[in-house]
Amino acid sequence: MSLRAVLLLVALLALALLASLALGEVHLAPGEILRVLAGGGDAMTRTILLDFRLPRALVAMAVGAALAASGVLMQSFFRNPLASPGLLGVSSGGALGAVIAFAFGWASLSMWSLPLASIAGAFLATLAVLAIAREGASTEHLLLAGVAMNALFGAATSFVLTLKAGHFEVGGQILFWLMGGLESRTWEHVAISLPGVLLACLLVLPSARALNLLAMGELGAQSLGVNVKRLRWELIILSTLLTALATAVGGVVGFVGLIVPHLLRLAFGPDHRRLLPLSMLGGAAFVLLCDLLVRTLPGQLRLGVVTALAGGPFFLWMLRRGGRP
C-alpha cells in the first residue's frame, strides 16, 4: 500500500516533468528530450531544454516539494490540518526582502541578489520566531506571534510598494513577484534552492515517527519517549528553511503547503512515514503542473494565482467539512 502510493506519486511526478519539458511554444518529442539529456540533439533544442525548461522545472519541483513538506511540518507542529508554511511570517518576511531589493534596484545587479535579499528577509522573520520560541512560548503564543509578524511584514511590503507606485516598471515587477512565478529561472536559482531543499527533506524524514506521536498531543508524545523540545526546534528550523528557499526562488506561492498534504492525507492516511515523502513528491508534481498551465495557457497567469485558484475553493470546501479528514 505504502509502496504503491509512492510509485503512483513518482509516476505522476515523472509525467509532469516530461510534460513540462516537452510542452511550450516549441513542442519537443520525448525522443528528442532523451537525446538532449544523453548529450546529443541540435543546438536549438539543447538551448530550449537545458537553458530554459530544465532549470525552470527543477526550481518548480524544489518549490513544490519544499512548500508541501513545510506544510506537513507546520500542521504537525500546530496539530492543526489547516496550518500553512507561511503561518509564522517566514514567507511574508521573504517577500519583504525581495520587495526591498526591487525597490532599491538591487534586483537587477546580479542573478543572486533578489533570492539572497528574500532569504535575508525570511531569516529575519525566522530569528523573530526563534526568539519567541526560545522563551518557552506555547504553541498558541507562536501562532499569535505569527499573525502579528505577517501583519507587520505585510504592512512594510505595502509601504515600500506605495513608495514605488509611481514607477510602473518597478511596481509591476514587485506585484508580479508577490504573485509568485518561475519565468526565466536559471541554474543559479536551481543552485540556491535544490540542494537546501533536498537536505532539509532528508533531515526531516527520520523524525516521521516522532511526528506521528506529536500529532496526537505534546505531553503524550513526551511521555512515550519523544524529546519534544528538540523535535519542536527541528520542526521550526527545517520548515522555515524550506519556506525561505521556496519563497526566494518562486516568490509568494500560496496553498501548495495546505492542499497537497491535505489531499494526500485524505487518500493515504495521516501517517507521517508515508505522508512526508508523498507530500514532497506530490508538491513537486503539483507546482510543475501549475507552472505548465502558466506557461501554456494564454494571458498573463501567475503561478501564485493558479495555485490559489486551485487551492482557494478546496480550502473553503475543507472548512465546510470541519477541516478534519
Binding site: R79, A210, N212, L213, M216, L224, R324
Partner: peptide, 17 residues
C-alpha cells in the same frame, strides 16, 4: 484528536521507546 490515525496505530505508538 486532530488527526485521524487508526486506533491500532495510536495504540502501537506505545511501543515508540
Amino acid at each position: 484528536a486532530d488527526f485521524g490515525f487508526p486506533v491500532r496505530e495510536v495504540v502501537a505508538q506505545g511501543r515508540y521507546a
